[in-house]
C-alpha cells in the first residue's frame, strides 16, 4: 500500500484510447464459416477457451492456408469484460498473415503492448492484465487443433505469472543472482506479481500452481543449504546455547523437510558434552514416533550433524 493505492475504483480511467476504441468497436468480432474457408481456400479452425461460469470465454476463428500454414482470416467472439473484448480483437488482428507457428508465439504481453497509445504507458491497469491472458490461451488452443497436438506442447516452461509471462526458472535465477529476500523485490526485478497478484500467495483472484511466496522461501532455503559452512573448530568452541542454535539450523536446512513429508518431526531435548563426545538427545514427533525406520533416521541425522558440524556428535533418541 502507498499513496497511489489509496483512491480505489479507478480501473477504467487507466484504459488507453486504443482499448476504449476496441471495446466500443471491435473490428474482428464475428464468425467465420466453412463457406468463408472454401472461398479463401483454407481450413477453418474454431477454438473455444474458458467457461461462462468462470466469467470469461473466448472463441477464435481462423482460416489457415494449408500449403504454408498462413492465417488468412481471424475473427473472435467473447463473453468477457471490456478488456477481454479489446484484447481478443487485437489478438485476432495480430494473428493475420502469420503462420500458425508464428502466431503461437504471440503472448498476452504482445497484445497489451499493441494496445498502448504510447510505448511507455501500459494500456490497461495492472488488475486487468489477466483479462488478456485468455487471448493467449485461445491461440494455443487453435494451433493445437490445427496441428492436432496437445496444447501443452507449445509451453515448454512452467509459467508462474501469467500476466507478465514470467517463468519459474527466471524467478529462481533472479532470487539467487540478486540475493532477493522479499516478494516485492521479485516483482521489481521481473514484474511477476505486479498485475492481478494471483501468483503472490493463495487466496487471490484465481488459484495458481506456483506462488511467489513459496518459491522465495524454497529458493532461499536452497541458497542457504548451498552456502552453509561452519568452521568445525568454531563449533567445538561454541557455548552450549550457540551449539544448540547451530544444530537447530542444520535440522531446519537438511533434515526436517524430509521428516515433514511423512508427517513427522524432530525436537532437540538436550545436549551434553565431554572432551571426546557431544551427545544430542532428540525426541521424535508425529509419524516419526511410531515409524519402523526411525533408527535409520537417527543415523541420517547423526551423519548430517557430524558432516556439517562435528565428528564427535552422537545421537540419542529419548
Amino acid at each position: 500500500m502507498a499513496k497511489k493505492d489509496l483512491v480505489g475504483g479507478s480501473l477504467w480511467e487507466q484504459y488507453s484510447d486504443i482499448v476504449n476504441e476496441r471495446m466500443k468497436y471491435p473490428k474482428f468480432r464475428g464468425e467465420l464459416t466453412q463457406e468463408d474457408a472454401k472461398k479463401l481456400g483454407g481450413k477453418l479452425i474454431v477454438a473455444d477457451w474458458g467457461a461462462e461460469s468462470c466469467g470469461d470465454t473466448v472463441r477464435l476463428y481462423w482460416i489457415v492456408r494449408e500449403s504454408d500454414q498462413v492465417i488468412l482470416s481471424a475473427k473472435f467472439k467473447s463473453f468477457g469484460c471490456g478488456t477481454a473484448i479489446a484484447s481478443s480483437d487485437v489478438m485476432s488482428e495480430l494473428c493475420l498473415g502469420k503462420t500458425v507457428d508464428q502466431a503461437v508465439k504471440i503472448t498476452n504481453v504482445d497484445v497489451e503492448k499493441a494496445m498502448r497509445d504510447t510505448p511507455d504507458k501500459p494500456a490497461v491497469p495492472p488488475q486487468k492484465m489477466h483479462c488478456s491472458v485468455m487471448a493467449y490461451d485461445v491461440i494455443k488452443k487453435a494451433a493445437s487443433l490445427y496441428k492436432n497436438v496437445d496444447m501443452d506442447s507449445f509451453e515448454n516452461e512452467e509459467i508462474v505469472c501469467e500476466c507478465a509471462r514470467v517463468t519459474l526458472s527466471t524467478i529462481k535465477e533472479v532470487i539467487k543472482n540478486n540475493n532477493l529476500t522479499t516478494v516485492e523485490q521479485i516483482t521489481d526485478y521481473t514484474k511477476a506479481g505486479a498485475f492481478c497478484k494471483s501468483c503472490i500467495k493463495p487466496g487471490g483472484h484465481e488459484s495458481r500452481k506456483y506462488y511467489l511466496e513459496d518459491i522465495l522461501r524454497e529458493t532461499r532455503n536452497e541458497m542457504e543449504k548451498d552456502t552453509y559452512s561452519v568452521d568445525r573448530v568454531d563449533f567445538g568452541k561454541m557455548s552450549i546455547v550457540m551449539k544448540f542454535r547451530e544444530i537447530e539450523k542444520i535440522l531446519d536446512l537438511f533434515v526436517r523437510d524430509f521428516l515433514k513429508k511423512d508427517g513427522g518431526n524432530v525436537e532437540v531435548v538436550d545436549i551434553k558434552e565431554s572432551d571426546d563426545e557431544i551427545t544430542v538427545y532428540i525426541d521424535y514427533q508425529g509419524a516419526c514416533k511410531s515409524c519402523a525406520g526411525s533408527q535409520g533416521t537417527a543415523f541420517f541425522i547423526q551423519d548430517t550433524l557430524r558432516e556439517k558440524l562435528d565428528s564427535r556428535i552422537n545421537i540419542y533418541t529419548v
Binding site: W12, M23, K24, E52, G55, D56, F79, G80, C81, G82, A84, I85
Partner: peptide
C-alpha cells in the same frame, strides 16, 4: 444471459 457484467456496466457508463 451472455452479457458479462463489467462489459455491460462499461457500455452503460459510456
Amino acid at each position: 444471459k451472455g452479457v458479462e457484467g463489467e462489459a455491460m456496466l462499461w457500455d452503460l457508463n459510456r
